[in-house]
């Protein structure tokens, strides 16, 4: 994130740094976006007589549970990485970042497997709102997840030194917040789409 160019401190050391606040605020916007999508999904689902739509396959709860586990593990790996960063353990940090990115990639792979399975079973994008909402919700989430994974990999690849420069440590904290957000949104979606 940009450094403040101001030589004079603005407020006597704000308790929470700018970048954390800005990230959290930004994630509130993200949460509202997904809330809008999930709200629309609920309205369409409970407004229609049959769900899944007649003749359409049910959603693969097994695969989705696997992806849920993967993204949760990915978040755990990242938590550990961030903790390592705070204890100045750059090696564990790097390993944790890669692990998190790898698990995130695996999550995406399982998602892709879900889509292709459902497409094979005849669940099209357009024909039913059942299909459309599923692809749009998981797709919007996957788009966020892809950007998260790419970001994690970029940071991990750059982390070669045995120390963590300030600037990168901020980036890692922000990226971690984002990635946990992506994970939480997925868990919400998992509950709403598959378990309700």
């Amino acid at each position: 994130m940009t450094r403040t160019r101001n030589p004079v401190p603005q407020t006597p050391s704000p308790p929470v740094p700018n970048y954390t606040i800005a990230t959290l605020i930004f994630l509130v916007a993200g949460a509202m976006f997904f809330a809008g999508l999930i709200g629309a999904y609920l309205v369409l689902r409970y407004g229609s007589g049959t769900w899944p739509a007649p003749g359409m396959p049910p959603l693969p709860v097994g695969l989705a549970s696997a992806s849920t586990a993967l993204i949760a593990l990915s978040s755990v790996a990242l938590l550990r990485a961030v903790r390592a960063m705070r204890t100045l353990d750059a090696v564990t940090l790097r390993r944790g970042l890669f692990a998190s990115a790898a698990l995130g990639t695996a999550f995406l792979a399982v998602q892709a497997a879900q889509w292709s399975r459902l497409l094979d079973l005849g669940l099209g994008f357009r024909a039913t709102t059942y299909g459309t909402t599923f692809y749009v919700l998981t797709g919007a989430h996957a788009a966020h997840a892809i950007s998260g994974v790419v970001w994690l990999v970029l940071i991990a690849a750059r982390q070669r030194e045995l120390w963590v420069p300030d600037r990168r440590s901020r980036a890692i904290e922000v990226c971690a917040l984002y990635w946990h957000f992506v994970g939480l949104v997925w868990i919400g979606m998992f509950v709403v789409l598959y378990l309700l």
Binding site: V28, M32, F34, G36, G39, A40
Partner: peptide, 8 residues
């Protein structure tokens, strides 16, 4: 809080 919902 409102704009992202419109975006959706």
């Amino acid at each position: 809080m409102a704009t992202p919902v419109l975006a959706a």
